[in-house]
Design a protein around this nucleic acid. Structure first.
Lengths: 199, 199
DNA sequence: TATTAACCATAACAGCGTTACGCTGCTCCT
DNA sequence: AGGAGCAGCGTAACGCTGTTATGGTTAATA
C-alpha cells in the first residue's frame, strides 16, 4: 500500500478493511502503527539490498562497478519513491520516526560501494583516503540527487535540451570520480564500461 | 511553531488556541491548512534567501565565495531542520504538497551560487561547462549532506576520530571543486580563504 | 440610516491512532 | 474427556485531526 498508493493510504483502518479485519488486528500483531511501519521498512531495506547485491563485482574496474551500484541506487529511489522517502527521507509516516537500529540498516548498505572504493584506491584510481569518508561523500551525492528528483525539484526540463536525469547522473558520477582522484579519461571510460551491464 | 516544536505541533487547533481564536480563523484567512503551510514556507524561503544574501561576493576568488554560500546552506538546514524538511525534503505537513510555484522559489536560490560558478569558469578555475548543470550537481551534494544530517544518518561519531560534520563539508567541497576542474591546491587555498568570513 | 460584506464562534462530520471490554475458539493439563 | 486458561479479535468509544454549515456580530459602504 505504501509503495503503490503513498504514505497517506497506509492507515490502520484502510489496512484492516483491505484484509477484512478490525483495527485490533494491527495491535495484536504489531503493537502500534509505528511498529507496523517499522516492519514495512525492514522489507524496504531488504528489497534495496537485494537490488544492490545483483551488481556483479569487477576487480579489474572497480570504478565501473561503483558506477553500476550508483545507478541501482537511483533506480530504486525512482521505482519506489514512497518507500525511499521513509527509508532515507525521514518521512514521518503515521508518527513513525527512524530508530538508531533502523538507520544502522541504512548505513549497512554502504559496505557494498565502500568495498569497490577500497579496491579503486588499491589500484591507484582513487586518491588514498578514508574510504568511509569517501563513500559517505558519494552517499550525499546520490541521496541528494534521488531525493531532489523524488520531491520534483530535479526535472529533465530544467537540465537543458536533451539532457535527461540519467545523463545528469553520469555527469555527476564522472565528476565525483575525478574529485576522488581519477582522471577524466579513466572515469569516462569506466562510465561507458559500466553502462550496459546493470543486473 | 513549525521551527520550534516540529511539524506535529503545527495543527489548526493548536494554532488557533495559541492566538485565542476558533478554527474558522484559519479558513477565513488562508482557506485551508495546506494553504496556511504554503505561507509558512514562503516565509521559510525568505529567511533562507536572506542568509544567502549576506555572503559577500568575491570577484577575485569566486570559489571561496561559493564555499561560503555552501556553509550557509548547511547552517540553515541545521538551524531550522523542520523548516528545511518542508522546503526541500518533501515533508507532507498537514496534507501539504509542494507546488510548482513553490519549487520555483527553491530553484530561484540557485541563481546565487550559479553566479559564483560562472565567475569561477571565467577565471579558469572551473572547467568550462553548463553552469546550471554544475550548480545542480553542487545542490545534490549540499541537499544530500544536509538531509542525511537532518534525518540522523550522518553523524560525527560515524566519521572517525576528530572529524566533525563541518570538517566533512570542507572535504566534500574541496573534492567538488576538484571534480569541477579546480586543482587540489587552489581548492584547498580557497577553502582556507573562505573559512572565517561568513556573514 | 439602511444595506452589505467580512469576520469568526459554535457545533458537527469523517477519518485518524489507540484502547477498554467482552466474546470466541483453541490449547493444554488433569 | 472435560474443564481451565488464554491468545486473538470484533465492538465501541476517546481524543485528536482537517473541514464545513450555520448563524450572529461588526465594520464599512450607499
Amino acid at each position: 500500500m505504501l509503495a503503490e498508493r503513498g504514505p497517506a493510504a497506509l492507515s490502520a483502518r484502510r489496512l484492516v478493511r483491505e484484509v477484512g479485519a478490525s483495527t485490533m488486528a494491527v495491535y495484536t500483531h504489531f503493537g502500534s502503527m509505528p511498529a507496523l511501519v517499522r516492519e514495512v521498512i525492514r522489507e524496504g531495506f531488504a528489497r534495496f539490498m537485494e537490488r544492490l547485491k545483483k551488481v556483479r563485482t569487477d576487480d579489474e574496474d572497480p570504478v565501473a562497478e561503483l558506477f553500476a551500484l550508483c545507478r541501482v541506487y537511483r533506480e530504486f529511489a525512482v521505482a519506489e519513491p514512497h518507500v525511499y522517502a521513509v527509508l532515507f527521507g525521514g518521512s514521518g509516516l503515521a508518527g513513525f520516526e527512524l530508530d538508531d537500529s533502523d538507520r544502522d540498516m541504512g548505513v549497512y548498505v554502504l559496505r557494498v560501494p565502500r568495498d569497490a572504493i577500497v579496491r579503486a584506491m588499491a589500484l591507484g584510481r582513487f586518491r588514498e583516503a578514508d574510504s568511509w569518508l569517501v563513500v559517505r561523500q558519494l552517499w550525499c551525492l546520490l541521496h541528494g540527487l534521488s531525493d531532489l528528483e523524488r520531491t520534483g525539484y530535479l526535472r529533465a526540463d530544467h537540465l537543458g535540451g536533451g539532457v535527461g536525469l540519467g545523463d545528469f547522473l553520469e555527469l555527476v558520477l564522472r565528476d565525483f570520480a575525478v574529485g576522488a582522484g581519477d582522471t577524466v579519461e579513466a572515469a569516462t571510460a569506466s562510465l561507458a564500461e559500466s553502462a550496459g551491464r546493470n543486473s
